[in-house]
Nucleic acid binder design. Structure first.
Ligand SMILES: Nc1ccn([C@H]2C[C@H](O)[C@@H](COP(=O)(O)OP(=O)(O)OP(=O)(O)O)O2)c(=O)n1
Ligand SMILES: [Mg+2]
Ligand SMILES: [Mg+2]
Length: 1032
DNA sequence: ATCCTCCCCTAC
DNA sequence: TAAGGTAGGGGAGGAT
């Protein structure tokens, strides 16, 4: 038996002391100041707010503040009831909805009032637009189209960047705008303008509007964009649109909101997601994929945009034979975040600009716990090692060029350089070598004059909707790629209008510019790849058409890394074979490429470097997985914190599943754990640093989507990985094998439970209340997946409480029969296929006491493969294949393989006990931390008698049931289910019913019924059977 | 041959 | 300080 990962890192001895120290340190470092919220009661009494859009503090936080200070928080704007609308900035689309009664106030009003301990006048915090205007806003700097192409077929059209007249008119009327309750005059102005514009709503019929309402707060129309700066506390502009400059600068001081910085703190997740650009673009991306489907579904087949182009009936001269060839377009906004942001900073147009959380003069704070130099060196070492390719040993990379190419010169970063990432940078910045995703500190070294602007997430969504809506006026042959990018089959558009390809894109880009004040570039080609390549060449603010006949030559001139799908690792591997350009690549045979890179990848490389691409436009996308992950701010002090965070993640993923109306059968836990040689603190503040990545999955027999079910699975998976909580640097939950349709596994709804309940209760056998019944939740034996995952983890981490599967767990025959027959009824799995596959919660002492006969009976029912023969951990270094070439570089090094036999149950049990004791010791030494083991408990009551007493007191003390209490009790019962304490559960349910029968607690009838219903539902999900309870 | 799990890679 | 998410393609190696 090899050393487990846990031992590899830190023995438990070391561990306890380290953890105590770490905790003290963390507490010091992230000390939250005395909570002003609690101290100042009631200052928002009578005030109700609705939070509109992205704010800082976030809506969630504002909700908390209101709740704690007698205010009211409305999840939706309730006209007449909501007294104030809190917003940091408003997309213009919301302006026209303004009513006299609506007062828009900046979030600083709340935070400043809180600080002052009294309600300040909202008038000092009114949200007003800036008055300097769009007249300044012109893009002279990007006027020149770079890619002059002499071939007339590839002619580039320059967009007229002058403002449409309408903007000027609108702008004039804006000068005196104020968003006060008197601002009603604005309504008519906006409406009349909308009338004049008279287009853009065409595809935006009611149903599509509905869609947008559901998916976002951004409504779509074709109004020109207002010059509204995001002026949250993140703003780093000199001139900010605020009535109260003083209030604003005060709110800059880091008083109220320096919390939520690390997972394990309250509201971390929502705060993180609020600010995560990657989360936002991912969300938008999936939203626009849905949006395209919706547009197509709701389409009436008319495309109003085409009318304007119909005049151009100059057929026959076309550069492409549309009857035999397709024309695909790729369109992508130029430096999207920057373009959107710059609309509010016209004075920065033409300068090197980047979007980032940090300000351009910000420095990273020094920290003795980290060592950037060491971390970067370690990182490079590991990456280089990983990219190393078995078949090629010759290539030695060392030069500066390669260092820049593969590592972006991270080694030159010093201790105070900001490690905030640039989401996007302007082309002026790119001219200096700055790139998207680069750290601010590095960028400033390349260009000290770099200016930074804040994120404007609402703005991105708003512009993205305009982009999609504009394109959708011409065709619905759209494949959404991201919020700023899509593929479009324009063959029909060209055929119907007689437009030249570039004529059309020129027109389209002009339309997009008019509606968004942001430029887009387009690429055209006979397939998706060439359209994509063409866009790259066209950028910025340009367009380009690659004709089929030019394709191969065009491609030959490109570097391999410009191929989509070829990133750092593939570039490295190609380069190590002396292949730098597509021309080089074209000379390599298909079989060599497939041998070196795998069958599929090899073929893709072979085709792509020639400009071939068989992919079809995918207009209708079906999601295959849903996941949630956080790899930032993950610093846990103990297992309770990591578990709590897994709960939050489960809740989040569950929420998204319900939203997407899916359930899933495969639950994968993804983990980042600090690499052994990495500094405790990462180079980036709260970053994950250099990590080992692990994933572990469980495939269930039934699809799930419920928080508690997901949670219990991932908690188990995390346990199996056996990584100390303090080492965790990232956690994620990935759900796959998705199913749509019958909501039989959603939240317990009466409609889904009751029929089954009434049908089955009669057949239901009683749960034996004499033994600890245990079996794993929905784990499935299919494909040997779950079964083999256990020995894997057991060998990896022998101290996990795994038991030899041959050692059958106790299963009262009544339950077993019920479960087996119930599963057979469901025809999902035959009884024979069903396996109990997890034993982590077996109550071993009870197990041993089972009658021999019962065990035998069970053994006959539940045949399983011989555990001794089952495979070792897949995480052990995989043997290099026979083929030397397809690399595969040994996997995780720090996890030894094991060929040793099964650990005895007794040994495991003892080990487990030791760990438990260790945990307890830790907590005791940390003092005042509530002692908590893994055992379910009801408000601290663990023992049956205690719980019973608690329940009785509960019924007696409260005259009316509190829904929160009910859910606490329900959750406790659910915990029992997951922990296989069915006998306890059974006793407690019976006890509750007995109490009811005394007649003293009649008002508890319904609440108890709802608890029992819930319990039965979960029982059904987890164990496939239910408790027998008498009617009441 | 085809499935599975656990990775790795890529793109925005 | 800083907000390093998310979905999908695909490969290695094992089981069946
Ligand atoms: N590492 C990255 C890459 C992109 N993005 C965000 C910001 C970008 O503005 C947006 C769109 O990505 P693009 O790849 O289209 O890049 P840009 O639009 O910024 O520039 P380009 O003109 O090259 O398209 O996605 C990001 O946050 N982080
Ligand atoms: Mg772009
Ligand atoms: Mg893009």
């Amino acid at each position: 038996m090899s050393k487990p990962r846990g031992s590899n890192n830190n023995g438990f001895d070391e561990w306890g002391g380290y953890m105590a120290a770490k905790k003290a340190k963390l507490e010091k470092q992230f000390e939250i100041e005395a909570d002003a919220v609690q101290a100042k009661e009631g200052i928002f009494s009578g005030i109700s707010i609705f939070v509109n859009g992205f704010t800082d503090p976030s809506a969630e936080e504002l909700k908390q503040i209101m709740a704690a200070n007698s205010g009211t928080y409305h999840h939706y704007h309730k006209p007449g009831k909501t007294s104030y609308i809190i917003a940091s900035n408003l997309p213009d689309t919301k302006i026209k909805q303004l009513k006299t009664s609506e007062v828009y106030v900046k979030p600083q009003w709340i935070t400043e009032s809180l600080r002052a301990g009294k309600l300040l006048s909202y008038k000092d915090f009114l949200l007003v637009p800036t008055t300097h205007g769009q007249k300044k806003l012109n893009f002279t700097a990007v006027n020149s189209v770079r890619n002059a192409n002499l071939d007339s077929e590839c002619e580039n059209f320059q967009i007229d960047l002058s403002l449409p007249k309408i903007t000027q008119g609108r702008n004039d009327s804006e000068e005196s705008w104020t968003w006060t309750s008197q601002a009603s005059f604005n309504d008519s102005g906006v409406d009349s303008e909308k009338q004049r514009e008279g287009k853009g709503q065409s595809v935006t019929d009611r149903t599509i509007d509905d869609f947008k309402e559901v998916l976002s707060t951004a409504k779509v129309d074709t109004e020109v964009v207002e010059d509204l700066r995001p002026s949250s506390t993140e703003s780093n502009a000199e001139d900010v649109a605020l009535v109260s400059e003083a209030a604003f600068s005060r709110s800059h001081s880091p008083v109220g909101h320096q919390r939520h910085l690390r997972a394990g703190e309250e509201h971390f997740l929502s705060e993180f997601y609020n600010r995560s650009r990657l989360h936002h673009i991912s969300t938008l991306s999936s939203m626009f994929k849905d949006y395209v489907s919706e547009l197509r579904k709701k389409s009436n087949g008319e495309f109003p945009g085409l009318n304007e182009l119909l005049n151009n009936e100059n057929a026959e001269t076309s550069s492409v034979d549309l009857s035999s060839e397709k024309v695909l377009m790729h369109i992508d906004m130029d430096c999207f975040f920057v373009s959107v942001g710059l609309r509010n900073y016209p004075e920065l147009v033409g300068l090197p600009v980047a979007v980032t959380h940090a300000k351009s003069d910000s420095k990273s704070k020094k920290n003795e716990d980290r060592n950037r130099e060491l971390e970067f060196r370690y990182y490079k070492e590991r990456v280089t090692e990983k990219m190393k390719d078995g078949s090629v040993t010759r290539y030695k990379f060392s030069n500066e060029e390669d260092d820049t190419k593969f590592f972006g010169r991270i080694s030159e970063i010093d201790e105070t350089d900001s490690m905030a990432e640039l989401a996007s940078c302007s082309y002026e910045a790119r001219a200096k070598g700055i790139k998207n995703g680069m750290f601010l500190g590095q960028a400033l070294k390349l260009c000290p004059e770099l200016r930074t602007i804040p994120y404007d997430f609402e703005g991105y969504k708003d512009v993205a909707f305009r982009l999609y809506d504009t394109v959708a006026e011409y065709t619905h042959q759209i494949e959404a790629v991201s919020c700023d990018e899509m593929y479009v089959d324009v063959t029909d558009v060209l055929r119907e209008t007689g437009c030249e390809p570039l004529e059309f894109t020129s027109h389209l880009r002009q339309k997009i510019y008019e509606r968004t004040r942001c430029t887009a570039s387009t690429g055209l080609g006979p397939n998706l790849l060439l359209a994509r390549m063409a866009t790259k060449k066209a950028k910025p603010n340009g367009q380009y058409h690659i004709l089929a006949k030019e394709a191969k030559n065009f491609m030959a001139s490109q570097l391999v890394e410009s191929l989509p799908g070829v990133g750092r690792a593939t570039t490295y591997r190609l380069q190590s074979r002396g292949i730098r350009t597509c021309d080089d690549l074209q000379k390599i045979s298909l079989s060599v490429l497939q041998n070196d890179f795998g069958v599929k990848t090899g073929e893709t490389l072979y085709r792509h470097c020639r400009g071939e691409d068989p992919r079809k436009l995918e207009t209708e996308h079906v999601r295959k997985s849903i996941s949630v992950a956080v790899n930032y701010g993950i610093r846990f002090v103990d297992e309770n914190e990591s578990k709590k965070f897994l709960h939050d993640l489960s809740e989040e993923v569950s929420k998204r599943m319900v939203e997407a109306k899916v359930t899933g059968r495969k639950i994968t836990l993804q983990v980042l754990s600090r690499a052994k040689g990495a500094p405790i603190e990462a180079a980036k503040f709260m970053g994950h640093g250099v990590c080992d990545a692990y994933s572990k999955s469980a495939t269930l027999s039934h699809p799930i989507s419920e928080t508690s079910l997901i949670e219990s699975e991932v908690v188990k998976l995390l346990k199996q990985l056996n990584i100390p909580a303090v080492e965790l640097r990232g956690l994620g939950i990935h759900i796959s094998k998705l199913e749509t349709g019958q909501p039989s596994t959603g939240l317990p709804s009466k409609s889904s439970i009751l029929p089954f309940l009434s049908k089955t209760t009669k057949e239901m056998k009683t749960v034996a209340s004499t033994s600890s019944v245990t079996m794993d939740s929905l784990s499935e034996n299919q494909g040997g997946s779950s079964v083999c995952s256990h020995p894997r983890s057991e060998e990896l981490y022998p101290e996990s409480d795994y038991i030899d599967p041959a050692f059958l767990e106790a299963l009262p025959s009544e339950i077993r029969e019920e479960i087996l027959s119930s599963r057979a009824r469901e025809a999902k799995l035959s009884a024979k296929d069903w396996r109990v596959t997890s034993f982590s919660q077996v109550d071993k002492s009870v197990l041993k006491e089972l009658p021999e006969e019962l065990q035998k009976e069970i053994r006959n029912e539940l045949i399983r493969p011989d555990p001794e023969v089952r495979p070792g951990p897949s995480k052990s270094p995989r043997k290099p294949g026979k083929k030397i070439s397809p690399s595969k570089r040994g996997r995780k090094k720090n996890l030894g393989t094991s060929t040793a036999g099964q650990t005895s149950v007794k040994a495991l049990f003892n080990k487990n006990t030791e760990i438990k004791q260790q945990n307890i010791a830790e907590k005791v030494s940390e003092s005042e931390n509530t002692l908590r083991t893994d055992e379910p408990n009801l408000a601290g009551a663990y023992k049956l008698e205690d719980v019973k007493r608690f329940l009785e007191e509960w019924l007696q003390c409260s005259d009316q049931p509190e829904s929160e209490d009910i859910s606490i009790v329900t959750q406790y019962f659910i915990d029992l289910i997951h922990n296989k304490k069915l006998h306890v559960l059974d006793l407690l349910v019976k006890y509750l019913l007995r109490l009811l029968k005394t007649g003293k607690f009649d008002q508890w009838r319904e609440p108890v019924k709802s608890i029992v219903d819930h319990v039965q539902f979960i029982m059904l999900q987890v164990h496939g059977g239910q408790l027998k309870v008498e009617e009441f």
